[in-house]
Design a protein around this nucleic acid. Structure first.
Lengths: 151, 151
DNA sequence: TTATGTTAGTACGATATCGTATTAAGTAGA
DNA sequence: TCTACTTAATACGATATCGTACTAACATAA
């Protein structure tokens, strides 16, 4: 790879890192005390999987260690946003499912954050976001594929 | 803002979040035990500011609480990657400067990560990266501006 | 100069992250 | 059905994050 390309890759990662941090804050401003953007992501993930997922699957999907996922799940359960039920297919395992209260939280936070985003400079922002959405999705898919090979 | 646009904003944040997490891991694989991608970012930042910056400025630049920055700086200093000197302009304050050892670490980690990125399978989509670099920079600038208003 | 308010950094404590080791359950071969 | 191996989740401990409260230094006005 050429020097210029390498430089661009790092610059890309830097921009992406800053934006990610910003979006995390944007979301967390509209979430209760102990709930983070990762919890929000978990709820969104589960809302698309009504049958529930195992902690293992969730840890993989969010690329965090299993022990961290154990802890996050406990917090969500303690607050009533999800419920943990035994996994009928495997007695070692469990299934985490979103509750109505969790769905409620998800929608509320979504709506409020959308409101916040709308008060910036929507026309410009929206145009630029739409401009990089496809390339970003492709890059992410690529990184996912690379990660599956290396672990 | 329209429903579609809102949806795209969230999708954008999701993609960006995943990519950011990936790049963090990519870098941290090439850093010593206690050093994270945020420390790496700090060193890069300081390398462009040979006169040093105050913890306050660093906390603002990286959008972390002051107390978190205090801790990060301590780790970097304990490992010899930066040095802390009194701020001649303000006796309450300090200046953090990168040391030669810190510059060394920065370059090594940069080189190794570049190597990793270059040899990735499947190969990185450099074209797509370059395609969204400009829009991303503009989005980031816009978010920076919004943040300055709200704190 | 004193009084009042602001700012830089940190001590401290609550909680979060995550690596290592452990337990319980599943699986496969002899 | 043993035995050995693998896997899901967690207990535990070290370290990190970050909110609150504090101290010391600065600034401003009277």
């Amino acid at each position: 790879m050429e020097d210029d390309s390498i430089h661009n890759v790092f610059r890309f990662f830097t921009e992406v890192g800053i934006i990610a941090q910003f979006s995390a804050r944007l979301i967390e401003k509209n979430l209760p005390e102990r709930i983070t953007h990762l919890h929000f992501g978990l709820l969104g993930h589960m809302s698309r999987r009504p049958d529930g997922e195992t902690p293992q699957q969730l840890a993989y999907a969010f690329q965090v260690p299993k022990t961290s996922m154990t802890h996050m799940i406990r917090v969500l359960e303690a607050e009533g946003y999800i419920e943990i039920v035994p996994n009928p297919e495997d007695a070692r395992s469990k299934l985490a499912k979103i509750t109505p209260k969790g769905g409620e939280l998800l929608m509320q936070a979504y709506a409020k954050s959308a409101q916040d985003a709308a008060t910036m400079d929507p026309p410009l922002l929206v145009a630029q976001i739409e401009q990089c959405l496809e390339p970003l999705a492709q890059i992410r898919a690529q990184l996912d594929a690379a990660r599956d090979k290396s672990g």
